[in-house]
Design a binder for these strands. Sequence first.
DNA 1: ATAGGGTTAG
Length: 579
Amino acid sequence: MEEERIGYLIEKCPDTRVIRQIHAHVLTRLLPISAVSFLLSKIVGFCALSRHGDINHARKVFAQTPNPNIFSWNSLIRGYYLVGSQSKVPLFLYKELVRKGYPSANTFTLAFVLKACSNILAFDEGRQVHARVFRSGFGSNQFVQTGLLNFYAKCEDIGLAEKVFDEIHERNVIAWSTMISGYAMMGLVNKAFGAFREMQTSNVVPDKVTMVSVISACAMAGALDIGRWIHAYIEKHMIETDIMLSTALVNMYAKCGCIEKAKEIFKGIPVKDHKAWSSMIVGLAVHGLAEEALEAFSRMEESKVTPSHVTFIGVLSACAHGGLVSEGRRYWSSMIELGIEPSIEHYGCMVDLLCRASLVGEACNFVQTMPFSPNPVIWRTLLIGCQKNKMLHKGEVAGEQLLALEPSNPENYTLLSNFYASVAQWEKMSHVRKMMKERGMKVVPGCASIEIDGFVHEFVMGDWHHPEAKDIRQALRVIAERVSDAGHEPQVSDVLHNVGNEEKGIYLCEHSERLAIAYGILKTKAPRPIRIVKNLRVCIDCHEVTKIISKIYEREIIVRDRVRFHKFVDGSCFCKDYW
DNA sequence: ATAGGGTTAG
């Protein structure tokens, strides 16, 4: 049969020229419409989906098809997002298909259009597809189910994602992985770990994709022990570590404070792409290892991997953390020469770089040159810069802008209040605090955690609910005495409360990281480093005190701040007091 | 014919 021969040719000779010849052949014969539609759908499918295909040709053939069948429609829908993930064409095609009412969508159609919706975060359109899934009775198809799940996860509607997930009766590794990655993406790390455990108890075998999601959750949480455990699991079960999994591991070890281990894994990646390089560079940057980060960047250039905008975020933040102002400016220019349009994140790095180098005036001018209006991060960076340099007026402006732009973020009030405290503007400080109260803002409590024997102990400032509170209090007292004997005077300007100095000193002693460090000293022995993860940035006094503790207790203390790492060894910190 | 994954400023 003619059709069979042509179908065979398309599968055996996937070549655009052959396709065109066949196409001509089909059109010059008088064949029944259904046969033409079938043959042309083969061509549409090939052109839209094959690596050697051509989506534009697919579209042309599709347009010439008398009654395109559902396979043609599906191929085109999928083909368009395969060439450009942000394309809206799949949605237009789907709409047209629905409007026409013929042929009717099948499970492939729904899965593909859901994927297209996830790519561009088209929430309303995806909702409509969901409604259609209900009506169509295809809701029990696994591909449609994971399509829906992934769609809600990507749109960050975790509630609806969970709802879809709960309704899946037979959950395969893909459904589980999608759910876990959805949790991880939203920072719901405990839910991610919980789902991972539940997956194992329901006897679904995790694969490398599952591992990537779990490892990412560890990176986010700074959960080193779990991360190590997962890494061991990967090795034990001989799960293939491809570049994505290796990159996730590099990132995890870096974000958990083991930069040496991150480097080791990075070294083992045979062919590194821009994401692998970026992870390494960002990792070195957050550790304050600016020179190494820049070295890595040159090696990346030598190996002819084109840096991405993310790579430059790493490079510029390395310069910022390392105080390398002129280098930072140079990389900024070379980034623009490479044709990378600076994003607000890149501007943010530069503003930070200038502020840390006490060039706050220049930082303000730089902000003026941005093609965007400053966002809260930029204002906060400026405000902190002004605080360090005691620049009352500029700081006040930044603070006002910040509160106007983001009045519902309690952190902003705290920052501005701290700023006024640091320049001894007590009235203004209490005004901010009053405003905060009136608007119902609660201070974000400092929270620090330490992982001991696979259990994460969380400490909140001033919270004494820990079962070993008594011992911790005692340990804190001893530490405070020894620190004080070492000649430390509390630096109290970061304390919120407008109270007497002595009392301020007491508040400082109860900062969450102090509790966590005290617990670490209580529970672990040298040479094991004490690793702390903190939700806020470290205050100046805690930074000083931790330096002293590292010396008098001869302990290495690694603190993961909200933005970077501090590594305290023998009385000093790797951040060189830049942070 | 189909589904899930890695890097991102303070």
